[in-house]
Design a binder for these strands. Structure first.
Lengths: 237, 237
DNA sequence: CCCTTTTCGTGATTCTGGTCACAGGGTCAG
DNA sequence: CTGACCCTGTGACCAGAATCACGAAAAGGG
């Protein structure tokens, strides 16, 4: 039975950018049908929390539209953003599979829509459709890799400038915008700081410095990369 | 057919410390038998490399005895140790499942024995025994969590002292030694530095400082935690 | 057991980036 | 339009860690 409102998972997969790795795309029709029955769709405003670090895992969210930031906070109040999730991403899978509390907080940074699948329904679904378990393993593997990259960024670079350069280059490679040398800046300096493990002030200063050194150029909220080679050189120094 | 030398996976699981989460333990007999047929066992000396960052994934290693350090290195030569693997741990699973190059280097830090399973054999095995795929997902989830903890350590703490305290407390919680307040130091200061993202000299100085402040006491290679409360206070400050 | 190699301890020096402080600019609601 | 609020830019200051540089201590190998 098709959900009466919004995009179904099926629809979403048909319309979403061709990312074959998506957890629930390209499945047998029978599995997709079951999925449509066990999922529920909701729309979330900006700043909505899908789940919060430490909560018992209720289930997984599949982002249809909008973006969410995944972050974790220390007792001292310091925060790290581990990932910016986009349409198609599966959130909370690790906690749900291992039945441990959500290890991060997922907060919408722009309004969007997400499908929710409860833990029980997901586990039951996986038992019924063994082929999907492999998809889950692959998705976990990708999530692992993302966090692993975070360790490399935080552990192998000694200067914030290096990390900012790395972040910008990473953004310029994502095919979100036509021109690979243009990046739409949708995060605040504060959030960028939380991604690269530094302070807001330092991010501000770094942008100033990068502009002065002609590495980048800022037009409104669009960042243009003027000297990609120089940025790359900063990264693997 | 049982391998003629050393411990088989079956033996190993029967004799290894009761860790139910081990990937290949507590499986149906049929699956275990197949495993014994597809695995090969070898003994590695200290400093032997099981695999190296960037290599195409040949398969997974299951450590039977000994320990290995997993590390990754930047172009600039800086190194981070992401994990110290012990008996029972599965190494290279992520790379093997996702068919991406090994993301870390695995080097034995004490002599030991490991079972190797080629990628092809493993994938075939997983297709035959669907229930093991769930185990793989669980293992990947644990690996994810380990690296995630690394991000928290590197990203949420601002001082090396905090990170060292966290590391020592983590060691004191592993049940490798009888008394939870005694830790056998088996890593060099250099390696400890690579685990907490600082320099060798800083680690030396921190140990001196901790001793002077009566937080710990050193007897040969055994570290005794004198003031656990104070260390814990440093961590979640 | 001696000699080589690795690991450890510690001083002196430099300098980056965190912290505090404040002012200007944008945005949004009423 | 206007205030409240959040985001940005920049200056001044300084603690804390990286770096360099040694010599001492320990481990390992023949």
């Amino acid at each position: 039975m098709r959900a009466p409102y919004g995009l179904s998972i099926l629809d979403n997969c048909l319309t979403c950018p061709a990312r074959e790795e998506h957890l629930f795309c390209h499945l047998p029709v029978a599995a997709l049908q079951t999925l449509n029955e066990i999922k529920s769709t909701a729309i979330y405003p900006k700043s909505a929390m899908l789940f919060i670090e430490g909560q018992l895992p209720r289930g997984v969210f599949v982002l249809c539209t909008g973006r969410a930031k995944l972050s974790t906070t220390s007792a001292g109040g310091k925060t790290v953003i581990t990932r910016i999730a986009e349409a198609g991403d599966v959130l909370g899978l690790n906690a749900t599979i291992s039945n441990r509390p959500y290890e991060v907080t997922a907060e919408m940074i722009e309004p969007g829509q997400a499908n929710f699948i409860t833990r029980d329904a997901l586990l039951h679904f996986l038992r019924e459709h063994g082929e999907v378990a492999v998809r889950v393993a692959e998705q976990l593997s990708r999530d692992y890799y993302t966090v692993y990259e975070g360790v490399r960024t935080l552990g192998l670079t000694n200067s914030p400038s290096e990390r900012l350069a790395k972040l910008l280059l990473g953004w310029s490679n994502t095919p979100r915008n036509g021109d690979p040398l243009q990046v739409k800046l949708t995060l605040t300096h504060e959030e960028i700081a939380e991604m690269i493990g530094t302070t807001r002030e330092t991010v501000s200063r770094l942008f100033s410095e990068f502009k002065k050194r002609q590495l980048v150029q800022l037009k409104g909220a669009t960042l243009m990369i003027r000297n990609k080679a120089a940025l790359e050189k900063m990264v693997n120094s």
